[in-house]
Nucleic acid binder design. Structure first.
Lengths: 223, 223
DNA sequence: TAATGTGAACGCCTTCACAGCA
DNA sequence: TGCTGTGAAGGCGTTCACATTA
């Protein structure tokens, strides 16, 4: 179990591997109580069995040769790796349709992530509740964020608002951003030695416009 | 300009390149009327100048040595490559908060993508308008989708609904999916020789849970 | 015997370095 | 002279193939 330890020799874990862990976790939780082989996990997640084994092996030897992986244990191992064994505190900025959908979704499906504050400039919304959290003004969001110990911010705000907001939040100690505005966030590295804030962009336009490309009839000669 | 032609010898274009084109397009449209160097485009988009040049060179030689790229022309060239020079018809499934946000966003920012139909099971919503499009029942969505010539479907529906819906839509001729449900869509390849439907997943859980990982204090010995 | 864990081969994409051209 | 276009080198991640072990 080895609680606070880093796995084996601290070799670098590919980002691609990290991005697959949530899929494994979801599959394991759906099949809880069973043993699962890498092949079975592969079918459930859409990845190859070798991929599954290699990914898991980065963190240790969780399987039993000839048998497979214990679903329960592996699930909590992955939760630990992802840092989901202690609550992740998030703040939501923007309580429009998108923000509302996000808040409800997170509340409904993520025990491990909690939206502890929702900020919106519209006074009409202040005091209303979304998924159990009260919407408040942006007046003192920095101190509020620090008081609550917010680790990540979810930005569901207009394009122009995202960059300045992110900058102030980063300065206030927020270490991760989930950015829905189609802009490139540039954040200065923190003065102390700490690593720069992580930014994950979810850009609908990119998805739509690349989808347009792949949907085109490519009358490639297919030589 | 070479309208319907494939570029040069039909070498394969990396997916990663396609995914960067929308960013270039956005930057070019913001600076319209100017000339831009690959270095300038790089700063605007966050990619290296070599990356920019290599990406663009896949499709032809649009730049002038010693000078740079013509913003206007390059923008319409990229639009053509992505297939955005003719309208992309999309259908939205699910008119909850997420669906509503998506419909409004697309209508407000994408001339080239039009949501021609919105479907939702809730009778209360039927007949109401979102961003100029009337919400209708799911009763005859397949014939409706075919009648309208829908190319892509945006799925903002509950998890369990996504897979069966996608399957029926694929059978009805829909060639692209933007899936917001956290499930793996598996679609059979079409009986005729046509390429399989493209699926782009936008999975909030993956983004949140991987963000949790990167936000952890990794007390790596940093050897 | 069955399925894991892993070095090696492979392929894709990025970065480098520079030749080529306005 | 300055910036593009591109072969070559390098790096990263996936796939292969198999030795390993319950």
């Amino acid at each position: 179990m080895a609680k606070g330890m880093l796995p084996r020799t601290a070799r670098r874990i590919p980002d691609a591997t990290i991005r697959r862990l949530p899929a494994y976790l979801r599959a394991l939780e759906a099949e809880a109580g069973q043993r699962l082989t890498s092949a079975a996990l592969g079918v459930l997640t859409g990845f190859s069995s070798e991929q599954v084994r290699k990914d898991l092996a980065y963190f240790g030897a969780f399987g039993t040769r000839g048998v497979g992986y214990p679903a329960q244990e592996l699930a909590s191992e992955i939760r630990h790796i992802l840092g989901l064994d202690h609550e992740l505190k998030a703040a939501l900025f923007g309580a429009g349709h998108l923000g509302t959908a996000l808040a409800r979704y997170v509340a409904a499906t993520h025990r491990d992530v909690r939206i502890v504050a929702i900020f919106d400039p519209d006074p009409q919304k202040h005091g209303t509740e979304i998924a159990g959290t009260v919407v408040e003004s942006l007046a003192h969001f920095e101190t509020e964020v620090q008081r609550l110990g917010v680790a990540v911010a979810i930005l569901a705000v207009p394009d122009a608002a995202a960059q300045p907001l992110a900058q102030r939040l980063a300065a206030a100690g927020v270490r991760g951003f989930l950015n829905f505005a189609p802009v490139m966030l540039t954040l200065p590295a923190p003065a102390d030695g700490s690593p720069p804030a992580a930014v994950h962009n979810i850009d609908l336009s990119i998805e739509l416009q690349t989808l347009a490309y792949f949907v085109q009839v490519h009358e490639t000669a297919q030589v």
